[in-house]
């Protein structure tokens, strides 16, 4: 469903992504691990189209999308959530979901009629609100709900575009252990045919939800395999404890 081929990206003399290649099958859930500065968010920005790689290719469902802009990739089914909330604070939770759903259904550019009252949009809003447990907050303004609810909405907005591939950048960033537990259940409840790539620091979440794990360090893939293998990996421990050195 999603494949990267020898992705490379530098900012001046800083080489942030080095020859990154991996492949996600349909419905696969892969977690990207790595210490701060490993190049995880840069990789997401390359996949989403917010950055263009210096070399390499990105394939989405067999199509080369490397040179396509962000919106075109999104329309092809690649959606993302952000590490820092990028919600529309002045709008209600329902309007946030509705905005995403109306873009997906094509009503977001129509001149006449309220897009949020369209049955197609309403159906997506209600469906996604149920998926990410937002029904009690639908009419609340985003600025009035808790941080944890905003993180759920961040994922919900990405889901409201009905993606084929969902990129989640640290979905549990800044939430407490209880909320992180709720996110485990939330991820487990998402449709199994949805392909998910997650950047995560929470090891428990990573090992619980991942079908496969990719570890990045200094922009390169240093581990790619099953969670069970990663769990016992000395390399992973070394990277997180800081004794691993880049060659």
């Amino acid at each position: 469903m999603l494949e990267t081929r020898n992705l490379d990206k530098s900012f001046g003399a800083v080489h942030v992504t080095r020859d990154v290649s991996f492949r996600l099958e349909k419905g696969e859930r892969r977690v990207i691990l790595g210490p701060n500065g490993a190049g995880k968010t840069t990789l997401f920005n390359l996949l989403a189209g917010e950055l263009i790689p210096d070399s390499g290719a990105i394939m989405l469902a067999g199509e080369d999308v490397t040179s396509l802009p962000v919106a075109s990739r999104a329309r092809r089914g690649l959606s993302r959530s952000y590490q820092k909330n990028t919600l529309f604070d002045g709008l209600s939770v329902e309007e946030n979901l509705g905005l995403a759903a109306s873009i997906h259904t094509g009503f977001g550019t129509r001149l006449w009629g309220d897009s949020l009252s369209r049955p197609e949009v309403r159906e997506i809003v209600e469906d996604v609100a149920a998926q990410v447990n937002l029904q009690p907050y639908l009419h609340a303004r985003v600025s009035e709900v808790s941080y944890g609810v905003r993180r759920q909405l961040e994922v919900g907005v990405a889901l409201a575009t009905r993606p084929r591939v969902l990129l989640m950048d640290e979905p549990t960033s800044g939430v407490g252990p209880e909320m992180a537990g709720a996110f485990h259940a939330l991820l487990a409840g998402l449709p199994r045919d949805l392909t998910i790539l997650i950047i995560e620091h929470d090891m428990d979440l990573a090992f619980e939800v991942a079908d496969s794990i990719t570890v990045l360090n200094y922009g390169e893939v240093v581990f790619d395999g099953a969670p069970e293998t990663a769990r016992g990996s000395d390399l992973l421990k070394e990277i997180y404890l800081g004794s691993w050195e880049h060659a």
């Binding site: 917010e50 919106a71 990028t86 002045g90 509705g98 575009t161």
Partner: peptide, 19 residues
């Protein structure tokens, strides 16, 4: 509505598929 979304966050609206 999309215009208001653009005013709040162009980046997010692009990521949702809006031109």
């Amino acid at each position: 509505r999309s215009l208001t979304g653009v005013m709040h966050s162009e980046q997010r609206m692009r990521a949702l598929g809006l031109t």
